[in-house]
Amino acid sequence: MKAEEIQHITSFREHFGTWLALIILTVMTVTISVFGADLLSLTVVTALAIATTKAIVVGYYFMHLKYESRIYLLMVGVVMLLFIVFLVLTIFDYVFR
């Protein structure tokens, strides 16, 4: 086996922990939406914040970004930045039209 092929093997325990975190976040977002109407309404911002947390957990642990070389994190960051630029430009277009 070549040196560059040495790979990190994620333990089943870590996978289960990741899964549990994702399920808890799902329960949270559904609970806020269904039962918490008078406590705290699930605004777009709350929903997107929880969804983004879940997406980061999936990317970091399940998609192995935690153990990949930093170049992958950098690329993901650039793509996210690109999307945010599209988002902000679209918002400006509609708000100041």
Partner: peptide, 26 residues
């Protein structure tokens, strides 16, 4: 196998956004 896993996780991430945006925002 790892690439098929990456693709599958992406499908999961897209659903993570679709679910609250269509079903939950009341």
């Amino acid at each position: 196998l790892e690439n098929s896993g990456l693709y599958w996780h992406l499908v999961d991430i897209i659903w993570i956004y679709l679910f609250p945006l269509f079903y939950l925002i009341h």
